[in-house]
Design a protein around this nucleic acid. Sequence first.
DNA 1: AATCATTTTAAACACTTGTTTAAAACGAAT
DNA 2: ATTCGTTTTAAACAAGTGTTTAAAATGATT
Lengths: 214, 214
Amino acid sequence: MFYLNCIDFYTIVMQNKLDTQEKIVQSATELFLEKGYDRTSVREIASKAKINVSLMNYYFRSKEMLFETIINLLIGKASGALKDVLNADLELNEKIRQYICKYIDMLISNPLLISFILAVLNRNPEKLTKLKVVDNLYNTEIFTKQLNEEYEKGNIKKINSEQFNINMLSLIAFPFAFKHLINKKNNFSQKEFNEFIKERKEIIFNMLICYLKP
Amino acid sequence: MFYLNCIDFYTIVMQNKLDTQEKIVQSATELFLEKGYDRTSVREIASKAKINVSLMNYYFRSKEMLFETIINLLIGKASGALKDVLNADLELNEKIRQYICKYIDMLISNPLLISFILAVLNRNPEKLTKLKVVDNLYNTEIFTKQLNEEYEKGNIKKINSEQFNINMLSLIAFPFAFKHLINKKNNFSQKEFNEFIKERKEIIFNMLICYLKP
DNA sequence: AATCATTTTAAACACTTGTTTAAAACGAAT
DNA sequence: ATTCGTTTTAAACAAGTGTTTAAAATGATT
């Protein structure tokens, strides 16, 4: 009974605490993604989360620390699944196909993510480079090893693994950062842009495979 | 004599005017490129240009209009030469080779340009999309036509021109936006990064040509 | 030497920023 | 009913923002 009460107490307190904390994180995440850190004021965050301004400082000490919390969350969410594909036990062609597909699907679900990452990378590179999770944004040791093995088996030509991975990432990610200009040049709607992107799965796969041929 | 005086008068006035105007533009350009619009204050610009704060308003009316002036300048500078290559009377392979080479050399000379463009594109897309010059950032009608002709001659396979141009641009430009992360992952110095980029001229060319083969 | 438009200056403006403070509200434990 | 730690609130803070103002300096023209 006492124990139950104790659990109840903590769960309720934690629940409430997480409620407002989470409200702050969620509102701030949306605003940071849409307008960026600098153009988002703490009063805007508070108003969107329907909480008092100073609660942001109460729970996160400062706007900057809230920002770092959100960076970690966004990057972690994005990079987790991708690393798993690169490290999976899959035949090379199939792995590349799945990687492209998953990465593009993830970016279609989070269309602002790439611009957010690039903005942070441009203004506060150390905020990103100090995170371990960014290592999973592209390439892994296991994948590099696999590329080398395939070369030694004579299945693919000799390539620089880092360059190859940057090629993959460039082809996958850049169009999202360039979206507004692509849409304007082609008079694309949001839907048409997504179709344009989905077409790329096949195109990118073919380019990479073609390039790998010995 | 009077005429000469008149010329002198105007040239001197214009000279002075351009001097402070140019000082403002130059200082602001550097700061906007390095830290972005939002993190650059007008007092910082004035201090760097060694002029009084209100001269910025005197010559450009507002920080925002100064920003737009600088956007036009930077984009125009970047896109001019590139368009010429795409529209030149060159054999397809040679044109692609030159385009890659010129684009990469230009970005090595202006390493902050891509991040700047992407930042503007992310926060004030209409500021860029309303400019005619952005049409020259990639693709042209003439180049699209050339690709179609080569296909009809049976020299290359059927491709979507827009997709092909986005592929080129992605492979060329994205690594500059991702520089900090590439440098961190590989422990690159600035010099090593540039070497890494220069290697890409050949790699990108091979990828694209390989993909075009019927 | 006086005039006049242009350029430059310092000061002030109104407003927003992120953060801190100290009091109030809350909610369970005694 | 009171106590006590946690959470929430409104108000104030100091610092910084872009812009405006009105006076001063400049320098060629009359």
